[in-house]
Nucleic acid binder design. Structure first.
Lengths: 246, 246
DNA sequence: CGTAGTATTGAAACGGATCAATATCTGTGG
DNA sequence: CCACAGATATTGATCCGTTTCAATACTACG
């Protein structure tokens, strides 16, 4: 079911060079995320990266297993989660195109990573990447910026789930999904590639609470659902009001 | 009040060189965080860092102001928070000795940083640090490891506040505070340098809920409070059980 | 076209938020 | 050194929204 949300879109020619997206620490003219890598740097990464394709639901790697590679998303969406003793399965992050993941701890992966849609990834051996970065400080600086960007996104996530109301949390997720959708096709339609259950895991809510929150957003005329994986924004102001870190 | 928790401890000679603590991506012999910087690297940082002392409650910088410096904590605790329109003030992180903060976005700070205790900081001008890192890839790699470590801590934080029960969240905070206390003095006593209100902001709870959670921990014999800022662990197994990401 | 995974909807109960009153602590000035 | 004032924390009572449990509907895919 997640399938169609992505596969019905024009095949989005997988780029043959890795890219990274982020917001530099220092001042730039752009206000949002920018392409971090120069062409030369992209080539340098391409020379140590293998392109891999995976169908949705594929486990990229499991937590606590030896970390052999670092990944960059070329196309599609993956989720990072953990399996807790209680059976809970909190989703720590969704990674989209131009995001990086696989930064380990003590040689072991920290989270389990799974493809949410069909994905194209760049896979770089950790040891080789480390050498490359140690040799090219400018390239490494781009990685530093990217990881810092991920840190800020994690903090944004923290704020979102710190909210009390389910509708607000869902609205804030829709807003950030909108940013990712917009980069590919310009429209008032938000692509929701993950399942309700994934959303629940990400927002720290029960599946039912997510379902009800979507329902309330629809009934109050904020959004209209084309299908379970696509929503049309009908009241941008209303959505922004709900989504804004209140 | 927070004051005594730190000031009654032996003056903890402020080191004259910055240090960083974190867990490398690759395999090491240690299982926990390690000292990341070599002596040479510490000297290199020291040469571009100014030592600054601030009494508790001092605002180090405010969100949305121009980011001139990056900081490393030498001694004491600072908190990172945001002021939301609702009046809520979520605490995104506490930074302890050997932690880094001040990584900006587009030349502007993202959070407001405030001293929780009296603190000693190393302050490094962003532009100079950037040049230094661009020149010394090995040093930069340490920063990359450190920021990655902060990212993982943010994820751990996310998991903690994703829990439903107040007692569990508080227990998990006590556990991580214990790690920080232990580094300085070996004892069964946990130093809680921040206020109940800070704890509430960090855990996404109300002040009252935090107070009640502490109370329940005390009544169930898990901990005993010396004063509001120090707790003695009386049932380590019980604490671990509650704190473990359930 | 059926089946398994996914999602919706309803009813009841739990736990934290909120409101309110009181207590305790911290730092200051007499 | 003590007393006071403002900040911080505790405790109680009620309310509200989410969780949980349960039943049913939907959708994707073989």
């Amino acid at each position: 079911m997640t399938q169609n949300a992505t596969s019905r879109r024009p095949p989005a020619p997988p780029q043959d060079h890795p890219t990274l997206r982020g917001i530099p620490l220092w001042e730039t003219d752009a206000s949002g995320p920018v392409r971090l890598l120069s062409n030369r740097q992209r080539q340098e990464l391409a020379s140590i990266a293998a392109r891999v394709h995976m169908p949705r639901r594929t486990i990229v790697y499991r937590e606590h297993t030896p970390a052999e590679s670092v990944f960059i998303v070329s196309h599609g969406v993956v989720k990072a989660f953990r399996d807790l003793p209680s059976g809970k399965r909190p989703v720590l992050a969704f990674h989209f195109a131009e995001d990086i993941f696989g930064l380990a701890e003590n040689g072991l992966y920290v989270n389990t990573l799974q493809a949410v849609t069909d994905v194209d990834l760049f896979r770089m051996p950790l040891a080789v990447l480390r050498d490359t970065l140690a040799r090219d400080a400018e390239l490494q600086l781009q990685f530093l910026v990217k990881v810092t960007h991920e840190l800020r996104e994690a903090q944004h996530h923290t704020i979102a789930i710190g909210r009390r109301d389910a509708v607000g949390r869902v609205a804030s997720l829709l807003r950030s999904l909108e940013d990712h959708t917009a980069r590919e096709e310009q429209s008032g339609i938000i692509d929701i590639p993950m399942t309700r259950s994934d959303v629940a895991g990400y927002l720290g809510l029960s599946l039912e609470a997510v379902s009800r929150a979507f329902r309330r957003l629809e009934r109050s005329g904020i959004v209209a659902f084309v299908d379970r994986h696509r929503a049309r924004v009908r009241d941008r102001r209303g959505l922004d009001r709900l989504a804004s870190a209140y």
